[in-house]
Design a protein around this nucleic acid. Structure first.
Lengths: 243, 243
DNA sequence: GCGGTTTCTGACCGGCCGTTTAGTAATGCC
DNA sequence: GGCATTACTAAACGGCCGGTCAGAAACCGC
């Protein structure tokens, strides 16, 4: 054998690199700063990594793999739910409620898992949002967000068909709001030292969206002036857009 | 006199620079590419601009000035509205509606103006979001977004106090959704050739938020089981978070 | 056409930084 | 301790590109 390598040099370099990337972006992060932070010389970097980009690629791939896995699981769960749950025609209120509670439960769980991943890799995400224009990673994060946005929009469409949510608000607007809030959440994470309370955040977010989406009582049709027998289950005051 | 300068060289350079910035970010945009796109030589750039950064600074300042102006006008309008409109205690439904309609009207108008500005400078915004980490412009756009977010949150707080919107959803969550949708809208603009239909987008966005925020009928208090005489103005089904 | 003036060119400089490499230090084994 | 082997260092290399400047070109008034 011979001189053994510092066993934690590599992970130290990764950590230091993440800090530098977060601070300066990929382009302006300097190798020498990364190695200096670990008490190593510039050249030592290349004992562990092919290049600066290779290191970052590693981080991004890790992020993408985990995100893909989450996405796949969530999509599968949604598909299973909708096919198993059938067309929701049931008038049985208890049944509907139970089904919706199930949907809510696993969506919430997936939300939290996703937020956890984002927290773990928040510095990488920050770079992917802010500091990779013109690099090979340009657009990676937005691609993921668009995919997620589309998933939400499709879920909204399905729920519309089942009459679970109102159909006079375009699904892509709904998706845009929901995912937009996620983007701002991601953005905030970077400067936070403590992990925020994701659970209540998700709850509030979904509450607001969910209730904004609940179906409106049908408007009186002037062409069909027949008196309704039963009161509508839900009534809603017309509310102005005031923000 | 002498040889006259090309009268539209400067504006051509600005246009070419914007395209390059949009494509590659500030750092990687090359002076030579900018000038070449105008049929000029590298040196010519410096006849018109101090430096690459100076050119971009000019664009950013233009953006900030206009955004500041819009923000100031909007804040002033809101303050005027709330102080003039008083504490909204009136039970007069017609009066309330008229006031809210007024609020809605000018918020809508300001939204559209702001979107127009963003469309105009969408390439600059794109760089401010994606391509300026570690530069002097790092955070500029997020600062503006945070300011706007805070404005929305404060407006929501005021409306809560007046009982116009429900108070069980945190104002900052509301603001996050609304501004998040704006961020995604900005993001989308970059790749769009045609100006999208801002008016209906704003309408849908505000409708969804507005109605998600409309006050819920008071829950029955078990401690005060006295029968209510009049039906509540608004009732809402509990809706699960399903996206 | 000519002189004077301003515009514009493009070769050049210089710094920065990623990457390489020749050399040195540390370590294990005998 | 000596040797083989591997880890690590630091100086040097080289490409890239922002910025400069000496000179060429264009233009005006005459």
């Amino acid at each position: 054998m011979a001189r053994p390598a510092d066993p934690n040099a590599r992970s130290a370099l990764v950590a230091a690199a993440r800090a530098q990337f977060r601070e300066h972006g990929i382009q302006r992060a300097r190798i020498e700063d990364i190695t200096a932070a670990c008490g190593l010389s510039k050249g030592a970097f290349y004992l562990h990594f092919e290049s600066k980009e290779a290191l970052f690629t590693e981080l991004v791939l890790q992020f993408e793999r985990q995100l893909d896995a989450l996405f796949a699981r969530r999509t599968a769960a949604e598909n299973a739910f909708f096919s198993r749950s059938g067309p929701f025609r049931s008038r049985d209120f208890a049944d509907r409620s139970a089904r919706l509670a199930e949907l809510e439960a696993f969506q919430n769980e997936h939300d939290l898992e996703t937020l956890e991943l984002m927290w773990e890799l928040r510095d990488v995400i920050h770079v992917l949002i802010n500091g990779c224009q013109g690099t090979a990673f340009d657009g990676v994060i937005w691609h993921a967000i668009d995919r997620e946005k589309q998933r939400v929009a499709e879920a909204a469409d399905r729920l519309k068909k089942f009459g679970v949510i109102r159909d006079d608000v375009p699904s892509d607007v709904v998706a845009m709001m929901l995912m937009g809030a996620w983007v701002l959440t991601m953005r905030q994470m970077v400067s936070q030292r403590e992990k925020p309370d994701f659970a209540t955040m998700v709850t509030h977010l979904n509450k607001l969206i969910g209730e904004g989406l609940s179906p409106v009582a049908e408007p009186r049709r002037s062409s069909k002036p027949a008196a309704r027998k039963s009161a509508p289950v839900a009534r809603r005051v017309r509310r102005a857009a005031v923000l």
